[in-house]
Nucleic acid binder design. Structure first.
Length: 574
DNA sequence: TAGTAGTGACTAACATTTGCCCACAAATG
């Protein structure tokens, strides 16, 4: 049984217990365990074999036993008992905006409602308004919520879509009279690969005008909530946008609160309480005297808690608080550290620009080195290069190289197919003539775990292969990526000193943050590349850098960081 | 339920706003 399925069952158990009205600590325990499992980089089966299940945070004797049961039998008897008691379709109702465990229980107890359809019907017939604490407005809201759910508009959105949108809206609000500070918060500020909604923060002395303006934005399809300090709108694409407005004196606490993550905030607030303080989005309050301390910036919050500043990308309660306490936070890689982009395409295969155009664009962006890596012959759909055309391309690269000499190191490589049978697309003697060989999986990504893992390991062990691009092949929100045994992949990459790519394309971000961190722990060389198919794509490097930061990387762990010596040393070693 | 105490019991819980119905549930980080 896979980690994700086990986590799902724990989430379901937590929700069923909550609907049943069970002890909240019990509920939170299951939820915490599910979150822990979701973030693991290794299969639970492996951890179990090491006997380390109970070492995982939030997992003790009872939950470890339940994990073992699921690994062995594929099911959980405790869950089955709960499911016999309460219909599992009740869990679907929790996905409706405005419906939580208490309402679900109310609908079930009073009207025997168990499914979305039954709830919608009861709402249309006006039965819900008869229930205590319900009314006509709640009924309408539930119908809207169900409609939205059925139009599939509640999923997560790509950071690559949300970030530009957030900055555009913020840019407009910044122009308003009275606005002193403005920022994007939430998971967008933390640069999570996907985001649930956009959070915007404004410090102003004219809150009412700001909120009115926000609620009347052209793109606002619906105003979901509107109060004196807070408003929420919904856009046509289903994306929710929250705005929180406070005076500038509350800026630090506001920004911190609205940046999250929730888990990080809870940790900070617990620490505050241990110091006899209460922390909220307005200030610190002394629990004895009631005296308030304002924080004009985030630094002063961490200072009050005796911590160094923790950058937003790390605020996930994945050990950053402990690291901060020991003054052991990583010196995170920055975009300015990147001097090379080692994976990009041209019109020779499926790119939109010539070698010359890509080279000039790289120079314009201050890069010192790029590698042209068009697709190989078997990827016909992308106009992959035959051996003959690869040689012709080498000649053109030689020409352009002269033009940019002194400004840019122009390398000639390939993004070579690892074919479905595990063989490589070019023979060794061809590979030997290239500056950099990237190997990639594009086809037959659905092969069973053992087969596709073996296929990738074979490529890693080929002495000519320098790098594996977008290792899992996932496309965010579209396909999950190959079912690889990542631990085996990491061990092989570590032993052969093969680079693993952090593909910066917002659709991929592959490796992900958790895998990045694990790979770096094992000393595997990493490379952040754009996989650009056009000049503009070179700018997507920001997303790759953000992913690397979320994986706790320093510049020293990334091969395409300056000076170029790191790269040269690597090449000499291969 | 997990963790810490010390082998059966106790404690742990962040803090807010909004909507909507009339005191609370849901949602936000």
């Amino acid at each position: 049984m896979k980690n994700a399925s086990i986590a799902k069952i724990f989430y379901d158990v937590a929700n069923l217990l909550q609907i049943r009205g069970d002890n909240i600590h019990r509920v939170l325990s299951y939820r915490r365990a599910a979150e822990t499992i979701d973030e693991l980089s290794q299969p639970l089966q492996d951890i179990r074999q090491e006997g380390d299940l109970e070492k995982l945070p939030g997992i003790g004797k009872t939950l470890a036993e339940k994990i073992v049961e699921m690994l062995d039998t594929g099911e959980l008897s405790f869950y089955n008992r709960l499911a016999a008691e309460l219909p599992v379709t009740l869990l679907d109702l929790l996905n409706i905006e405005g419906v939580g465990p208490k309402k679900v229980k109310l609908f079930y107890d009073e009207l025997q409602i168990t499914t979305l359809e039954e709830l919608a019907e009861a709402a249309r017939e006006g039965k819900l308004r008869e229930l205590p604490k319900m009314g006509a407005k709640s009924e309408e809201k539930i119908l809207r919520g169900i409609d939205q759910l059925q139009r599939q508009q509640t999923g997560r959105h790509l950071l690559g879509d949300a970030l530009p949108l957030a900055e555009r809206i913020l840019g407009e609000l910044k122009q308003l009279d009275g606005v002193q500070k403005a920022a994007v918060g939430g998971s967008v500020r933390r640069r999570k690969e996907t985001i649930g909604d956009i959070d915007l923060l404004i410090a102003t002395d004219k809150p009412e005008e700001t909120i009115d303006y926000f609620c009347n934005l052209e793109i606002a399809e619906e105003v979901v909530a509107k109060g004196p300090t807070k408003a929420r709108i919904q856009l046509a694409n289903g994306l929710g946008v929250d705005l929180r407005v406070l005076p500038a004196e509350n800026w630090g606490t506001l920004l911190s609160y609205f940046t999250g993550s929730q888990a990080h905030n809870v940790r900070l607030r617990e620490m505050a309480r241990k110091k006899g303080l209460s922390l909220n989005e307005y200030s610190f309050t002394d629990l004895d005297s009631g005296a308030e301390t304002l924080c004009p910036d985030e630094q002063s919050i961490y200072q009050t808690l005796d911590l160094p500043y923790i950058p937003p990308v790390l605020r996930e309660d994945r050990g950053e608080i402990e690291a901060a306490q020991q003054n052991d936070l990583p010196d995170l890689i920055q975009k300015s550290d990147i001097v090379a982009d080692l994976h990009m395409h041209t019109t020779w295969s499926d790119g939109q620009c010539s070698i010359r155009e890509m080279a000039r664009a790289a120079v314009d962006r201050g890069l010192r080195c790029i590698c042209i890596t068009d697709h190989s012959r078997s990827l016909g759909i992308a106009n992959g290069l035959s051996i003959e055309r690869l040689k012709e391309q080498a000649a053109e690269i030689k020409e352009v190289r002269k033009e940019v000499e002194g400004q840019l190191l122009l390398l000639h490589g390939t993004e070579m197919e690892i074919k479905a049978d595990g063989s490589l697309d070019y023979p060794d003697d061809v590979l030997a003539g290239l500056d950099l060989v990237i190997a990639s999986l594009h086809v037959s990504l659905n092969q069973p775990r053992r087969q596709i893992t073996e296929r990738l390991l074979k490529a890693i062990h080929n002495p000519h292969v320098d790098m594996i691009a977008h290792p899992t092949g996932r496309l965010l929100g579209r396909r999950p990526g190959a079912d690889l045994d990542m631990e085996q992949v990491f061990q092989a990459a570590a032993s052969t000193n093969t680079i693993l790519e952090i593909n910066a394309s917002p659709q991929r971000l592959d490796l992900n943050d958790i895998h990045i961190r694990r790979a770096a722990e094992l000393g595997i060389p990493l490379s952040i590349n754009t996989d650009a198919h056009a000049i503009d794509h070179l700018d997507l490097i920001d997303y790759g850098v953000a992913a690397a930061q979320r994986g706790w990387l320093t510049a020293g762990q990334v091969i395409n960081c300056g000076p170029l010596t790191q790269l040269e040393e690597f090449q000499n070693g291969h």
